[in-house]
C-alpha cells in the first residue's frame, strides 16, 4: 500500500508509470505484490501469501529482498516501479529475488527517470530460480528527453534444474542517454532461458549490451537476443556470448542492429565457446538498414519510406 507521507511523490511517479504502459491501479490492489521505490525510499509496498518482501534504505538507494515460498504460483504479476524525479543525483538499487522450487511468477518492472539531466541509476538484480520454477522478468525503462540519464543494469541469474527464465529489457519509447546492460544466466540441468533486449537509440545515445548464457547443466538451453534500432549519431556495442559447457546443451545468440543514417556507429560481437562435444551453439547477426523487401511491401501500399520504417521498427521493438 502507498505510504501516506509520499502520496505526492507517488502521484508524480504514477503519471510517468502510466506513460510507460503500466496500470497504476495495480499498485492499490491487495491481491498484487507491488514495490514502489522513489529515490532511496520505498514509498509503497504490498505482498500476498507465499511472498516475502523486505526492503532497506541505502544512502542513495534501496536494497530489496523478495522471496517466494516453494510451490507458490503467483496469479497476478509482481509489480516493481523504480523512479527518480530529480534532475541530478545517483540511485543504487540492489534486488535479491529467490524463487523456491515449483514456483511460478511474472515480474513487471518499470523504471521511470523523467527529469534526469545528470542522473545515474545503477541496478543489480541477483535472481535464483528454484527447481522446476518459471519466472518472467519484464523490465521497461522510460528516460528523460534530453539524454541525461545513465543506467547501469546488471542481471545475474541462476536457473536450477528444470527451471525456466525469461528476462526482457525494453527501452524504446524515450531517449536512452547512456545505457549499459549486462545479463548473465547460469543454466543448470534441463533449465532454459530466454534473455532479450530491445532498444531504440536517438541523437547521441550510447549503448553497451553484454548478454551471456552459461549452459552448465546437461540438457540446458538458452537464447540471448538483442534488437537495436540506431538512428542519428547514436552508438551501440553489443556482445552476445554462449558457453556450451554440458552435454546436450543448446544455445543460440542473435543480434539484429538496424541503422538509419550515416552517422551511427554500431557493432556486434558474437562469441561461442564449447567445452563439451555434445553441446550445440549457433548464432545470427545482422547490421544494416531496414529490410528492403519489408520496406517496399509497405511502400507499395502507399506509405512513405519514413512511415514504412517507423511501422517496421515499431513491430520489431515490441
Amino acid at each position: 500500500m502507498i505510504n501516506s507521507n509520499f502520496e505526492r511523490e507517488f502521484t508524480a511517479i504514477a503519471k510517468e508509470y502510466e506513460k510507460s504502459g503500466g496500470n497504476v491501479s495495480d499498485f492499490l490492489r491487495k491481491d498484487i505484490v507491488s514495490i514502489i521505490v522513489s529515490g532511496n525510499k520505498v514509498i509503497g509496498r504490498n505482498t500476498v501469501d507465499g511472498v516475502h518482501v523486505k526492503a532497506k534504505e541505502l544512502d542513495n538507494g534501496v536494497e530489496i529482498w523478495l522471496e517466494i515460498d516453494d510451490g507458490t504460483v503467483i496469479e497476478n504479476p509482481i509489480h516493481l516501479c523504480t523512479g527518480y524525479l530529480k534532475p541530478e543525483g545517483t540511485q543504487e538499487v540492489l534486488i535479491h529475488n529467490h524463487l523456491g522450487d515449483h514456483t511460478k511468477a511474472k515480474f513487471i518492472s518499470h523504471c521511470v527517470f523523467p527529469s534526469g539531466v545528470n542522473f545515474t541509476h545503477s541496478m543489480v538484480a541477483d535472481t535464483d530460480v528454484g527447481k522446476y520454477s518459471e519466472m518472467l522478468y519484464e523490465d521497461t525503462h522510460m528516460h528523460s528527453k534530453d539524454g541525461g540519464v545513465t543506467v547501469k543494469a546488471t542481471y545475474n541469474t541462476i536457473v536450477r534444474e528444470g527451471g525456466s527464465f525469461q528476462n526482457l529489457f525494453y527501452l524504446t519509447k524515450t531517449r536512452v542517454g547512456k545505457l549499459f546492460v549486462k545479463m548473465s544466466v547460469d543454466l543448470q540441468k534441463n533449465a532454459s532461458a530466454h534473455i532479450e533486449s530491445k532498444v531504440y537509440e536517438r541523437e547521441d545515445d550510447y549503448l553497451e549490451i553484454d548478454e551471456q548464457l552459461f549452459l552448465n547443466g546437461e540438457g540446458s538451453s538458452g537464447i540471448a537476443k538483442t534488437t537495436v534500432f540506431a538512428t542519428d549519431r547514436s552508438k551501440a556495442k553489443i556482445i552476445n556470448k554462449a558457453y556450451g559447457n554440458a552435454a546436450y546443451s543448446k544455445g543460440h545468440i542473435e543480434c539484429n542492429e538496424i541503422i538509419k543514417g550515416d552517422s551511427v556507429e554500431v557493432g556486434t560481437v558474437p562469441e561461442l565457446y564449447v567445452r563439451n562435444e555434445k553441446a550445440e551453439l549457433t548464432h545470427e547477426a545482422s547490421i544494416g538498414r531496414v529490410n528492403v523487401k519489408q520496406m517496399e511491401t509497405l511502400m507499395s501500399k502507399g506509405l512513405t519510406e519514413e512511415e514504412a520504417t517507423d511501422m517496421i521498427v515499431r513491430g520489431m521493438l515490441r
Partner: peptide
Amino acid sequence: PVRFEGLTVKEYLTLG
C-alpha cells in the same frame, strides 16, 4: 509476401 515481426494483421491491413 514478407513477414513482419511484432505487427498484427489488423495493423498490417490498416497500414498502422
